[in-house]
């Protein structure tokens, strides 16, 4: 699946998504698991996951104690009109102070990237190959916004 990170298409991404029903692979840490599973594993010695994939109803505050351990938080957008992920991203960055990678999953469209970036999302997992030149044009279209605390990156 094509991944856009900091405006560049990335080919060698080694993160894997593990469904709740599947066993966790051994000796692998760059995997994304559900919030419920991640929290349940906190007291287990086999826990090596450093990634969580959030659904729109997940409460991001639950990740606050783990913010330094986590390397990747994914935010699921089941459809491109789903708006909860924007608030989740904002809270993770601004309130919780998460500094790792924040990646959008699901129904991601080029025209949304700029809004997502302003909430602190920095990589985008597209279903189909995005038009990189178009994304660059879209994210550089607006130079300033009326909401100074939601900065444009760069």
């Amino acid at each position: 699946m094509p991944l856009l990170r900091n405006g560049e298409l990335v080919c060698n991404d080694n993160w894997i998504l593990i469904e709740d029903e599947s066993d966790l692979p051994k000796n692998h840490s760059t995997m994304l698991i559900s919030l419920t599973r991640y929290l349940a594993l906190q007291h287990s010695e086999t826990n090596s996951a450093v990634g969580v994939l959030l659904t729109p109803t997940d409460d991001v505050h639950l990740l606050s104690p783990h913010k330094r351990k986590l390397k990747l938080i994914g935010i699921e957008f089941p459809s491109f009109t789903e708006g909860r992920g924007y608030t989740q991203a904002r809270l993770l960055r601004k309130r919780i102070g998460y500094q790792g990678e924040l990646r959008a999953f699901g129904d991601i469209r080029e025209d949304q990237v700029s809004f997502m970036q302003r909430n602190g999302i920095d990589s985008f997992h597209f279903a189909d190959q995005p038009d990189k030149a178009l994304v660059q044009q879209l994210v550089s279209r607006f130079k300033t916004g009326y909401q100074p605390s939601y900065q444009y990156p760069g």
């Binding site: 924007y86 809004f115 939601y150």
Partner: peptide, 9 residues
């Protein structure tokens, strides 16, 4: 106007 968090309510 173009609030980044509240455009998809």
């Amino acid at each position: 106007t173009l609030h980044p968090e509240f455009n998809w309510l």
